Computed example of a mutant assay.
Amino acid sequence: MARKILRIFLIVIVLLLVILAVQAFRYRDTIQRVFLGGVKIYETQPPELPASLPRPAVLVFSKTNAFRHEEAIPAANALFRQIAREKGWGYFQTENGAAFRKDILSRFDTVVFNNVSGDVFTGDRRSAFENFVDAGGGFIGLHAAGDNSHEDWPWYARNLIGAAFTMHTMSPQFQTATVRLENRESPVLTGLPAHWKHNEEWYSFAASPRLKGYHVLMTVDERTYNPEGMFGKDLRMGADHPVIWWHCVGRGRALYSALGHQAEAFRQPEHVRLLTNALSWTARQTGSECDIAQPGPRP
């Protein structure tokens, strides 16, 4: 009897191992991206751009070598395409990191990192983008563009984004909370109400970028949601919990928004208005910030 039970037990174990192996093979790409340091894909041939691009022009980049936001990325790409069309701007979207060359970047006024994740560039591509921003190019980073998958690029993580991601909400993951404007005079916030409700996977950071002199545009009210992460981790930052901020990098205008995990975020009127304003501001069509080169930390 004991041998029969043992045999059944071993058969069950083997079946479970087979099921796990099949699932691991099926989801191997996701496992590599999320748990094993991401994939290492680096393009060498740049994409073919249109012969002419109206100026201002926006480059939307959505490459992911780590976790991929499958629903949010196409929704955001479509929104920026629509904004550019309505403004009469040039627009180009790519996931090809080889596009980050001096001659190609010189055709654009601002670059959007649409939920970019992981280590997506070789060293020369990094340098080209750093020089583009320092010389006055614009940057908008959305959601995963500020997570902890970018730590291998110190200039990007510490200087361009400027805040260290710690964790996002998990109890539950998506929650509706109240966001509040911090600086009504900024052209990025033109036409927006003083506060509104937004459903999001809320990011927390090790410290507010305000401590580094960055300009916070929006905070989230922690009293309106449960700031708790995996295994009950306390994600509270207190009264100063920024979700959108800007600063100068040389003469470049850099703006980061922690919003944008879900496709619905790119259909919410307030968020659409904010991103429309941010695009104009980073492309130097509004405001006078960063006209004089600002010294900044370079790792």
Rank of each mutant, 00 (worst) to 15 (best):
V18A: 07
N65R: 06
R33Y: 03
E71L: 07
G90I: 08
E95C: 05
F92Y: 02
V34M: 13
L36N: 15
I104W: 05
K102S: 09
P50R: 09
A75Y: 03
K102W: 00
R33Q: 06
Q93L: 11
F61E: 01
P47N: 11
A57Q: 10
G37M: 08
R28Q: 13
T64M: 12
K63L: 11
Q23G: 02
E48Y: 09
N96I: 06
Y27K: 06
F100A: 02
G38N: 09
R55H: 15
F80W: 14
E48R: 14
E70C: 04
I41G: 03
H69P: 07
S62Y: 08
Q45S: 12
T94H: 13
F35P: 00
N96M: 06
Y27A: 07
F100L: 06
K63F: 02
E43F: 11
V58W: 04
I73V: 13
P56L: 07
E70G: 08
R33F: 00
P47V: 08
F80Q: 03
F67T: 14
E95A: 09
A84T: 09
A72K: 00
R26D: 12
P46Q: 10
R101K: 13
D103P: 07
E70H: 10
I19T: 05
V34E: 15
G37Q: 06
L79V: 01
A98L: 06
Q32V: 07
R28V: 05
F100Y: 03
N65Q: 07
K102A: 12
V18K: 01
R33S: 01
I83A: 08
W89H: 06
G37P: 08
E95K: 06
E48A: 14
T94D: 10
S62Q: 04
A78N: 12
L53G: 04
A24H: 03
R101S: 05
F25L: 09
R28F: 12
R101W: 04
Q82A: 13
D103A: 15
I41D: 15
A66H: 03
R26Q: 10
R28L: 06
T64N: 15
P46G: 12
E43H: 15
Q23Y: 02
E71S: 11
A78K: 12
V58S: 01
F80H: 08
V22P: 05
F61C: 03
F92E: 00
E95Y: 02
Q32P: 01
N96P: 00
E48N: 14
E70A: 13
N65A: 05
P50L: 09
R81S: 13
V18C: 02
A84N: 05
K40V: 08
P46V: 11
Q23I: 01
R85L: 10
R55V: 11
E86T: 08
L49P: 04
A72S: 14
Q45V: 15
I31T: 04
Y42S: 10
R101P: 07
P46F: 07
L49E: 11
L20S: 00
